[in-house]
Design a protein around this nucleic acid. Sequence first.
DNA 1: AAGTGACTGGCAATCGGTTGACAATTGTTC
DNA 2: GAACAATTGTCAACCGATTGCCAGTCACTT
Lengths: 342, 342
Amino acid sequence: MEQSDAAIRTRAAERKAPPTIYDIARLTGVSPSTVSRALNKPGRLNAQTERRIRDAAAELGYRINPMARALPTGKTGTLGLLVSDITNPAYFDLVRGAERVASETGMTIVFADSQESPELERATAERLQTSVDGLLLVGSRLEDHQIQDLSSVKPLVVVNRLVEGIPAVIPDVRPGITTALELLREAGHRRIAYLAGPEASWMNGQRWQHAFEIAVEWDMSIVEIKSNAPTREGGAEAFGRVKAADVSAVLAYNDLVALGLLRECRDHGLDVPGRLSIIGFDDIFGADLPTPALSTIRMPLAALGERGIRRLLTEIDGGESEDESALPTEFVGRESIAAARS
Amino acid sequence: MEQSDAAIRTRAAERKAPPTIYDIARLTGVSPSTVSRALNKPGRLNAQTERRIRDAAAELGYRINPMARALPTGKTGTLGLLVSDITNPAYFDLVRGAERVASETGMTIVFADSQESPELERATAERLQTSVDGLLLVGSRLEDHQIQDLSSVKPLVVVNRLVEGIPAVIPDVRPGITTALELLREAGHRRIAYLAGPEASWMNGQRWQHAFEIAVEWDMSIVEIKSNAPTREGGAEAFGRVKAADVSAVLAYNDLVALGLLRECRDHGLDVPGRLSIIGFDDIFGADLPTPALSTIRMPLAALGERGIRRLLTEIDGGESEDESALPTEFVGRESIAAARS
DNA sequence: AAGTGACTGGCAATCGGTTGACAATTGTTC
DNA sequence: GAACAATTGTCAACCGATTGCCAGTCACTT
């Protein structure tokens, strides 16, 4: 016991330097540059030599030192992914999608969140930029010119946002909102509210604007209600204002605020969906858990993550890429909506 | 419009190389090594010179190139954080805690998940090791010797796991389980089941073992029921086995399986908690959402993340650090438990 | 006035790769 | 058999920092 324990400690302490191309060169009797070519430029060398070098590399357990390579090439093999709030489950699928594409292409993702703070976002973005090949900004709360400035340093792609001159990947919120409002109208709702998200969120603007346009077109009354934070707490705090607004249905900025509102309604004995219908946005983990289960508008999150990374990669390669079509959202009907009381 | 658009594109295309210490050296008329000292060894230089250099650096918007620094020093300023499944909300708080400590100390965290696959975990760990100063393995599904091997390459700390010779940060699951079983016993439960998690999970072993010991000690009958995956789906699939086991209460490996089981009970008309009491583990986001809200055993996740990173940092500095006390878990009573029917 | 030591700042080697230029070798063609 | 081309591998410079060693200054002792 003690013996093996000691052995392990020793082993850990003795961490020897990992093998380099110089070690491989010595072992095979060629020059380091030849080793580099054998490993990176298949075909450039004699097939036998290449074989020998590759075998030696495998035998030594050689792994390239990314830092050393990054120096002359300027390529780190790393992409930065910056989200506004890591504790929002909506980002799960997006991160998963991004990660999948990244690992397919042998890239590493550095993942960070800005806790809904623009200052922190800018600082983090700048810090990351020194060590990544490109940056993916998801739901950025920065101002347009700040994003443009960042983009002048390193390739950058925004998701859930549009900024002039910056490549972007966005969903089309219209299909989902249209279906949702259609259902509400058919169910007799005439007065609805939009429970807003952060003002700095472009996505929030989109959701409000389309809901507004459609409601106006269909002759429903619509009001915007502020919420303090795009969280469950924020949704709960808005309860009083929602109640006072005298509406029969609420479309929320996202599922978090919808869930917060839903819970608060229950705690105050306000019947959902009997007296108030609630619709969320994103279809996050847990949206189906409460009673009534939350109806929501599903975002194509995994696809946004995948496309975001793909777009970033072509941006890094300097390739042109035509703008792809926006990814559609989809209404997910659950139990939180019902007919309006006449 | 087109004009400014073109301007932005041009700007992005013209990405000029960021300033280096050589630029600063030229601007201030000193040598690069002096610049390096001015920036990293405060006091080593004449105060005026240092001032001049710092000002010049600020003016140029200099940011150190982490790659270039990493080469001679071997320090990348980056830590790897590897979790078993990024879509498990349990990791939120842990990641947040880890991130906080890391950014306090100026470190960057690279975050990755292994999707419950040991092979992927090993591959990812090895890949990360080439570019980080140390690795934090959370809920690793690897075997002990694999972890020990990894540890012989770079500093490594495990969370929610114990491996001989490897520094670890773990919670103490006993307080939470003890309180939970105490409540069940007082409520008249005599036959309970443990709905298991992955066999490769050390944490699963802990939870089962302590529940087992306590149940035996208190003369309650206890059985272990396998689940296919530590997810909501896995919990739902176990419903039949749970029902067949003829128990009045279930302690689940984690909240995900508990939530899955809870939902399945509801869908099959099995009254929770009237006929079956359910207790989860972790207290994840959403545990309080269903009706009945899920009782659970809360893990000190943020603290685990913080301590994990701290421990890793001292490990990197080669410092000794005495083992801290295990962090206690805590029972969170909600609606999913009730008295057993006699 | 020579000796001592503290303080400053420069030189040059080094980390581990990449890559353009070139030399050596081999094969091909007339 | 000489001229030429293609193939293969080496040389050496370079990426952007860090750091041990040394030299020059200057003030202060004795």
